[in-house]
């Protein structure tokens, strides 16, 4: 059984609701609130992009502490607690689907009183903040959500995002039932 998130670009309106739903879901699960999807916008195509859960996932092979694992349903997940923030997985990912995020000792986003130590235009992998332990964050298909469904798919305003499952097993609800 494998499942992945597909996007229909002609339906995507780049509203970012998927990112908000992703952030809310992961925060609720006690994980980093950084959204696991990014919006790609050009004249030709607009789409939200996330992890492809590749069959030969290079990130999986790169991780020195086995914080990245492949589940039975072929989903590639990061254990945020185990991750040491070495960023090797991000360098290996051909899609830029792995981002880094950490909670500063001064609190959550918005109320931190930090002094910027990097230029935002720098490559994301090179960014760092004093006192922040950054960990790899990537799509985990919302495994920890009570609904068992990726929140981006649930809340996509135009139903541009959908969950595609192959080799259905009887105990997993289909996309329709889950909605």
């Amino acid at each position: 059984m494998s499942r992945h998130i597909e996007i229909e670009p002609s339906r995507c309106i780049a509203c970012g609701t998927c990112q908000a739903a992703c952030s809310l879901g992961h925060r609720r699960a006690g994980l980093q609130a950084q959204p696991r999807l990014s919006l790609y916008q050009s004249r030709e195509v607009v789409a939200s992009l996330t992890c492809h859960h590749c069959a030969g996932a290079p990130c999986l092979r790169m991780c020195p502490v086995d914080a990245i694992t492949r589940d039975l349903d072929e989903c590639i997940r990061v254990d945020e607690k185990r991750c040491i923030g070495c960023k090797l997985c991000s360098l290996a990912c051909p899609y830029g689907a792995i981002d880094f995020s950490g909670t500063p000792i001064s609190g959550v986003a918005g109320i931190e009183y930090h002094t910027p130590t990097f230029v935002a235009a720098a490559d994301p992998v090179l960014r760092w903040k004093i006192g922040v332990y950054s960990r790899a964050v990537k799509c985990d298909q919302c495994v920890s959500d009570p609904s068992g469904k990726p929140q981006c798919v649930t809340y996509c305003v135009t139903k541009a995002l959908r969950l595609v499952e192959t080799q259905q097993t009887p105990d997993v609800p289909t996309a329709e039932e889950g909605a």
Partner: peptide, 9 residues
């Protein structure tokens, strides 16, 4: 709002 200020600041 936490999420909205995380997405754009």
């Amino acid at each position: 709002c936490t999420t909205l200020s995380l997405l754009a600041e």
